[in-house]
Computed example of a mutant assay.
Amino acid sequence: MGATEDIDVIHRGFAAFSAGDMATLNDLFTEDAVWHVPGSGSLSGPKEGRDAILSFFGELMTRSGGNLKVELDDVVGGGDHTVAMSRNHASRDANTLDQRAVIVFTLRDGRVAEARQFFEDTALNDAFWD
């Protein structure tokens, strides 16, 4: 697959996440995919395997009371990686989260095989979700 097709996969993934469409998300990840979450919080660390990634997404929704919104700003495709720039919004108890994030994706045969997430403020992200 080329950069254009990989960009389309990422757009579909963000749309599915926003819609809570777990069936589409399930189809967009390889079974052995790994999602890397930076930081030292309770949600940090690698999520190994598609089921662990989808469980992580569910935990984000549970902890935010379902109000996590991820707005995709841009997607750039290259030869080996596809990069998504987004803004994350959520509220939890009296706290709010509003920050930029970058995810570097590696795709294999039209599916996400690896994702490395980076936050504008990793400590803020850790504090919000813990």
Score class of each variant (00 low, 15 high):
R100H: 15
F57Q: 06
S42F: 06
T4A: 15
R50S: 10
V70I: 14
N88V: 07
G41E: 11
G66S: 02
Q99G: 10
V76Q: 11
Q99T: 08
R108K: 13
D21Q: 04
E59V: 15
T106E: 13
D74Q: 13
D6C: 04
E5T: 14
K69Y: 04
D80T: 12
G78V: 05
G77L: 03
N26R: 12
R92V: 12
F29D: 02
F118I: 09
R87T: 15
V83G: 01
H11F: 05
S55Y: 01
S40P: 00
A23D: 15
D8V: 04
G39V: 03
R63D: 12
R100K: 15
D130L: 10
D21G: 06
T122Y: 00
D126K: 05
K47N: 14
R100P: 03
A94M: 03
T62M: 05
A16H: 07
G65H: 02
D74V: 07
T4N: 09
A23Q: 12
H36P: 01
D74E: 15
H89F: 15
D6S: 10
E59D: 15
G13K: 04
E120H: 10
M1D: 08
G20R: 04
N88F: 07
G20K: 04
A127D: 14
A16W: 08
T82H: 03
D74G: 03
D6Q: 12
A94P: 00
G45Q: 02
G49P: 08
G41H: 07
E114M: 07
R116N: 10
T62Y: 05
S40H: 14
D121W: 00
A127N: 10
I10A: 08
N125P: 00
S86E: 13
H11V: 14
M85G: 11
D74S: 15
V9C: 07
S64C: 05
M1F: 09
R108V: 13
M22D: 07
L68E: 12
L54A: 05
L60G: 11
R116V: 13
D130R: 10
A113V: 05
D121G: 08
E31V: 14
G79E: 15
I103Y: 01
L107N: 04
E5N: 10
G13D: 09
R108W: 01
E59R: 15
T4F: 02
A33D: 08
I7N: 02
D130N: 15
Q99S: 06
S42I: 14
S64Q: 08
L97D: 03
R111T: 11
D121K: 02
D126E: 08
T62H: 10
V104H: 01
P46C: 06
D51Q: 09
G79S: 12
L72Q: 14
H36V: 11
N88L: 12
T4L: 07
